[in-house]
Simulated scan of single mutants.
Amino acid sequence: MAARIDLTLDCMDAQLLAQFWKTALGYIDEPPPAPFETRAEWLAQFDLPDDESEDDGAWLCDPDGAGPRLSLLKVPEPKAAKNRLHIDVRVPGHGRPAERWARITRESERLVKAGGNVLEVFDGHHMVMADPEGNEFCVAAAAAED
């Protein structure tokens, strides 16, 4: 049996990045673990330092349960280098190369409006983008089996 993974992204503003990644991935806020009714109730058990708050983290999930969970956690230091691991946002649909490229282009334009930036274009194949804090990700067509 394969292990399931969650992704954790260090950040400066968890709420800003949560909004971006919910838009990018179609994810939703993950409910707190049972038996807790709210995230604040769940966090209270950890006796957080006075300088930390509920807004310092965000927890997202795929509403269909297929994709990995995404945790966004505030850290004191800024991003300093290129990501060693990045997210690929796969645009659904098939068709001719020009049709796939048009979907990739539309998706990247949508994500720019949400606060992302295009860093590099590999014409006809994929685009390298960055979220509002500079974390790199790619926008590409879905694989044939998706």
Results as ranks from 00 to 15, higher is better:
Met1Ser: 13
Ala2Ile: 02
Ala2Trp: 02
Ala3Thr: 05
Ala3Val: 08
Ala3Met: 09
Asp6Lys: 08
Asp6Ser: 05
Leu7Thr: 08
Leu7Pro: 01
Thr8Lys: 02
Asp10Leu: 06
Cys11Pro: 08
Met12Asp: 01
Met12Phe: 02
Asp13Phe: 05
Gln15Ser: 02
Leu16Lys: 04
Ala18Val: 02
Gln19Phe: 09
Phe20Asn: 06
Trp21Phe: 03
Lys22Val: 04
Thr23Asp: 04
Ala24Arg: 01
Ala24Phe: 05
Leu25Thr: 06
Gly26Pro: 05
Asp29His: 03
Pro32Thr: 06
Pro32Ala: 07
Ala34His: 14
Pro35Gln: 08
Phe36Gly: 02
Phe36Arg: 01
Glu37Val: 05
Glu37Cys: 02
Thr38Met: 09
Thr38Arg: 03
Arg39Val: 01
Glu41Cys: 05
Leu43Phe: 07
Gln45Leu: 11
Leu48Phe: 07
Leu48Lys: 06
Leu48Met: 12
Ser53Leu: 12
Glu54Phe: 12
Glu54Pro: 09
Gly57Asp: 12
Trp59Tyr: 11
Trp59Val: 12
Trp59Asp: 10
Trp59Ile: 13
Asp64Lys: 15
Pro68His: 11
Pro68Gln: 04
Arg69Asp: 03
Leu70Gln: 10
Leu70Ile: 14
Ser71Ile: 01
Leu72Tyr: 11
Leu72Arg: 07
Pro78Gly: 08
Ala80Cys: 01
Ala80Leu: 02
Ala81Gln: 14
Ala81Ser: 15
Lys82Ala: 09
Asn83Val: 04
Asn83Ala: 12
Arg84Lys: 09
Arg84Ser: 06
Arg84Trp: 08
Arg84Phe: 04
Leu85Trp: 13
His86Glu: 12
His86Ile: 05
Ile87Ser: 00
Ile87Ala: 00
Val89Gly: 00
Val89Ile: 04
Arg90Lys: 08
Pro92Ala: 13
Gly93Met: 15
Gly93Cys: 15
Gly95Glu: 13
Gly95His: 08
Ala98Met: 10
Trp101Gln: 10
Trp101Asp: 02
Trp101Lys: 01
Arg103Gly: 07
Arg103Phe: 13
Arg103Val: 13
Arg103Asn: 12
Thr105Cys: 13
Arg106Met: 10
Ser108His: 11
Ser108Asn: 07
Glu109Asp: 11
Arg110Asn: 14
Arg110Phe: 13
Leu111Gln: 00
Ala114Gly: 04
Gly115Phe: 13
Asn117His: 09
Asn117Phe: 10
Leu119Asp: 11
Leu119Asn: 11
Leu119Ile: 15
Leu119Thr: 14
Leu119Lys: 12
Asp123Asn: 08
Asp123Leu: 03
Met127Asp: 00
Val128Asn: 03
Val128Ser: 01
Met129Pro: 05
Ala130Asn: 04
Asp131Asn: 14
Asp131Lys: 06
Asp131Ser: 04
Pro132His: 03
Gly134Gln: 00
Gly134Met: 02
Gly134Phe: 05
Glu136Tyr: 07
Val139Ala: 07
Ala142Lys: 10
Ala142Thr: 01
Ala143Glu: 14
Ala143Phe: 09
